[in-house]
């Protein structure tokens, strides 16, 4: 079972990263790698400190907002969609191919079109994040609900319960472990979605800041923003884990 207390083995990944830093620093120094190719950690740190915190927080908040809102919207769309597909074989057969088509179209390529469709502002960014995250959510929710033991469905039917109760009391809770697996994939994708959207059209956000910094050749600053993005992504992933641990602890069994 999952525990949130810290042990040495859980600290290992962070220690590995810490050990890599001096190697990176010395390598850059010894081989005289120019900082537009690979800046040293100290330079990145310097660049990070040179940007005022208020500026960071504006960009951070813009990206975080789009990622989380997009993810939540996607969740609100995909769970009902999964319920519909579980309830009706006909709709499953008609909707599923569409979902696969949408999923196999590169979102990066659709992004500029979405900007044209939705105009500037936050809505196209939310749409892009939604598009990139909903597939794993729909698939995991559908798979979870379909994997409900037949006996439980028969128990529900033998009690004369309505289909809505069957979904709400049995199938959806059964799908919770699956949905969380999907959410762990989707939450990291949501950062990707937000950044892709910012690349195409935005005046703020960490993705925008990476692009802005590289165009002004401020590579260490771009690296600092990149680092921020990784940490953000990691924290969101951990947040999903935490929600599962706090509210659905039973689903961590096995």
């Amino acid at each position: 079972m999952h525990k949130f207390n810290l042990s040495f083995s859980q600290l290992l990944p962070s220690l590995t990263l810490l050990a890599l830093l001096p190697i990176w620093e010395t390598a850059v120094y010894i081989f005289e790698i120019p900082n537009f190719l690979l800046p040293a950690p100290s330079e990145i740190m310097q660049a990070f400190l040179n940007v005022e915190w208020s500026r960071w927080s504006t960009h951070l908040w813009a990206t975080l907002r789009v990622a989380i809102l997009g993810f939540l919207m996607s969740l609100c769309i995909s769970i009902p969609l999964a319920v519909i597909m579980v309830r009706s074989k006909f709709l499953a057969k008609t909707i599923y191919p569409l979902l696969v088509i949408i999923q196999s179209t590169p979102v990066v390529a659709i992004a500029p079109l979405l900007i044209v469709m939705f105009g500037a502002g936050e809505s196209p960014r939310l749409a892009i994040t939604c598009l990139i995250t909903f597939f794993p959510l729909v698939v995991s929710a559908t798979t979870g609900m379909m994997s409900t033991p037949e006996e439980l469905i028969e128990l529900s039917k033998s009690l004369g319960a309505s289909p809505a109760k069957e979904i709400w009391h049995i199938r959806l809770p059964y799908a919770v472990p699956h949905i969380f697996s999907g959410m762990k994939v989707a939450i990291t994708l949501s950062i990707i979605g937000a950044v892709v959207a910012e690349f195409v059209a935005a005046e703020q956000g960490l993705g925008y800041f990476v692009q802005f910094s590289t165009s002004y050749f401020k590579i260490p600053q771009a690296f600092a923003a990149l680092l921020f993005l990784s940490v953000l992504s990691l924290l969101l992933f951990k947040a999903v884990q935490l929600v599962q641990y706090l509210f659905f602890r039973w689903s961590l069994q096995k």
Binding site: P149, E151, L152, E154, L155, K157, S158, L159, G160, I170, P173, V176, F248, W250, S251, Q253
Partner: peptide, 19 residues
């Protein structure tokens, strides 16, 4: 013709709700 309230079923597997 439809499920009855006067029958109880025990299945091959216990199929309890894990939550």
């Amino acid at each position: 013709t439809e499920p009855q309230s006067n029958t109880g079923i025990v299945f091959q597997k216990p199929t309890l709700l894990p939550w």
